[in-house]
Design a protein around this nucleic acid. Structure first.
Lengths: 348, 348
DNA sequence: CCCGAAAGTTGAAACGTCTCAATAGACTCT
DNA sequence: AGAGTCTATTGAGACGTTTCAACTTTCGGG
């Protein structure tokens, strides 16, 4: 045990361990308590000592170890984020918004993507628990939010992302998806469409369920039997699935005159599929998406869609969560509801 | 100090602290050492004891605290990731790939986006250091990689993402961007274009620099003076900046006959800008992008572009990093180079 | 010159885990 | 029965912080 074998292997790499608070203390001729104070309560330590210690910190390249601090304090300035699909620009913007608000408050984010799979979500939640994140921002896949409420009650504040809470029991930042669905459907109805298809993903996800509900409510308001919503369910809300759905869409008889997609990626795929089969948009079939992603205006035809503001959603959710973290006994769970906006272009 | 004021406030929330290894030990009538063993070296503990302990763990809902473990072990199964722009689907896919490989190995990712800003990057690196991540996957903004090499040498393995290392001193996963530039330029030259514009972002970023180098090498190979690369620099590689660049693009005299963009988002913006001004693509100006994002095939006109495989980049980089983490004294820094692919569509 | 208060500093305990040397028990062999 | 081997278990110390009560020093006032 006299000679250390580890220092021999690997040459110079991984040589000296990072300096800790006690190395600083030693070098500055002071106790660890004092060093810790200059970190956390600088005002209690004498100016001269403080300056000396700060100088030493710089020289040694000292950086405090947050995970040691977390162990002591029970908070580590990390928030977990789970989105439905990190490769979708909508969620990318949401994450960017979260990161922004997190950075502003000195927090850091741990990111997960569930790919809309409940199993992956469950595993991710386990990981989040293992790492004891301070708070959680999540676009849930699982139908019931019991587990999330449990996590919240156990001391890890949860804020729902783009998903309203059952009876508002958890704070949430949402866009009014029912209204979005209504807007799209009313627009189509106003243009005389009576047989409308709705292409969506798993209905476990509240956002898609709400959009559908909005669409249906409009069409059901009229009594006539011929107004009907044809529903096509796909596995994931991406362009590939959209293209695959076209087959099923066209085989319906009578064929829908308009297609409403639960998001723009899906609409993109549908558009590709339709075009490949020689079906013209909007002459033969009208098409409406949801999200108004960057590219949507430049498709051919330009996509009519419902605009949201994902960056703001992420940012507000982040701020809401951080507010709860900062002041644990904050009033009632807050719900933030943004309004969607119909953007009419050429496709419908 | 006899009565605890904290337990009063907030009602039931945040009540009992999470059970630790010692709670399990107490409940199972065994020492903490033994409990720790069933976690890390199950084979050394007697079957009966082990089962009993496992049962207790389940009952108590015990989950080990990884950040305490990190403190002891110096490794916490967290890897940091920094991309250039999380809202760009290219990087979204990269992150998805990283997450995939991380999950497979029981790691978790901490995500940052630099927005191509060197200051943000520097701040993010500080945060990463504070949190003592085990390894780092980064698409660097800063020109020189000294700081990264330093981090690597100090014991936090670094793998470069979509960025080749100076003289191959750091492991990297890259696509051959020079080749991509060559392919695009040769294609244009083959179609008779002689005055080509290249729209790009900050040239600190190696990928863009390489793409430009490839383009230039092709055009310079011919001696004729009239072959020239017109360069337009923008602040960020997104659609908005692309649209803004069009103004400058068209004011050049003589006007370029073809425009090459450093990525598809930029091309999207350029396309929008050109269309708005009544310039037809490809009749008046040819346009080529880079990345082949999902939507690129569906633009009007469909975008000719260079295809990459971001998911694979992310995944391979993740695997490479985790291999280094698992076996610290791994041979030489490895470079992984993917080949790009020209996808010819209508825009050029 | 002594007292008390104010200002600075200290040392130890605690957070939850891992590891290692030490111990205890059971079994085998002579 | 004693010595020697295994197998299971234990307890203490360490990882890098924070915090708090206790201590020392300084200083003003009586």
């Amino acid at each position: 045990m006299a000679s250390d074998p580890k220092s021999a292997r690997g040459g110079r790499a991984r040589s000296r361990r990072e300096p800790g608070i006690s190395d600083v203390a030693a070098a500055a001729g002071v106790s660890v308590g004092t060093v810790s104070h200059v970190l956390n309560r600088p005002e209690v330590v004498a100016l001269r000592t403080r300056e000396r210690i700060e100088r030493v910190m710089l020289e040694l390249g000292f950086v405090p170890d947050l995970s040691a601090r977390r162990l002591r304090l029970g908070m580590g300035r990390v928030i977990g984020v789970q989105v439905l699909d990190i490769a979708n620009p909508f969620w990318g913007e949401v994450v960017r918004g979260v990161e922004e608000s997190a950075r502003a408050a000195g927090y850091v984010i741990m990111v997960f993507s569930s790919s809309e799979s409940a199993e992956i979500e469950a595993r991710n939640l386990d990981l989040l628990r293992l790492h004891r994140v301070d708070g959680l921002l999540i676009a849930p896949v699982a139908t019931d939010e019991r587990r999330l409420r449990e996590i919240d009650a156990r001391g890890t504040p949860v804020v729902l992302l783009d998903h309203r809470s059952e009876r508002g029991r958890l704070p949430a930042v949402t866009v009014d998806d029912v209204l979005g669905g209504v807007m799209a459907a009313e627009y189509l109805r106003g243009r005389g469409h009576e047989r409308i298809a709705f292409v969506t993903g798993p209905l476990d996800i509240a956002a898609y369920r709400d959009r559908r509900a909005g669409v249906r409510s409009v069409l059901r308001r009229r009594q006539r039997q011929c107004e009907e919503v044809v529903e096509v369910r796909v596995a994931g809300l991406n362009a590939r699935e959209g293209a695959a759905a076209v087959q099923r869409l066209l085989s319906r008889d009578p064929r829908p005159t308009a297609v409403l997609c639960a998001n723009d990626l899906l609409a993109l795929g549908v558009l590709r599929g339709l075009t490949e089969r020689g079906v013209r948009v909007p002459e033969d079939v009208s098409l409406i998406g949801y999200d108004d992603l960057d590219f949507s205006a430049m498709l051919s035809p330009a996509l009519t869609t419902i605009r949201q503001h994902p960056f703001r959603i992420g940012q507000s959710a982040g701020e809401l969560l951080i507010a709860r973290l900062t002041d644990p006994d904050l009033s009632a769970p807050r719900q933030l509801l943004f309004e969607p906006e119909l953007v009419v272009r050429a496709s419908a």
